[in-house]
Amino acid sequence: MAAKKGHQSQWGWLNSCLLLVMVGMIFYCSWINNKIVARGYQLNDLREEEKHLIEEQDKLQAELATLKRPQNLARLARLLGLKEPRPGHKMVLP
């Protein structure tokens, strides 16, 4: 009778452990899944930000190209008192 009782308690102990592991795994899986979803949101936000920054960069590059257009540079150079070089005209800067 005592041996039978000991055998039963061993099984109960094992079952409890298994149950605990299972519950633990469920929590772990849920946590991982939650993390994946959170990372997904984060990744998506970063992609949106990257897209936005690329768009900004494109706009700034277009603006830079407009400012650096030869007509504009020539106008600004003339305002600063610069002249067009003669053929072969060179100046050695100190």
Binding site: E84, P85, P87, G88
Partner: peptide
Amino acid sequence: NRRLAGYLNYTSEAEF
């Protein structure tokens, strides 16, 4: 051509 020569760094015969 005068401006092109200046831009492309041509040396005129006189300068040469």
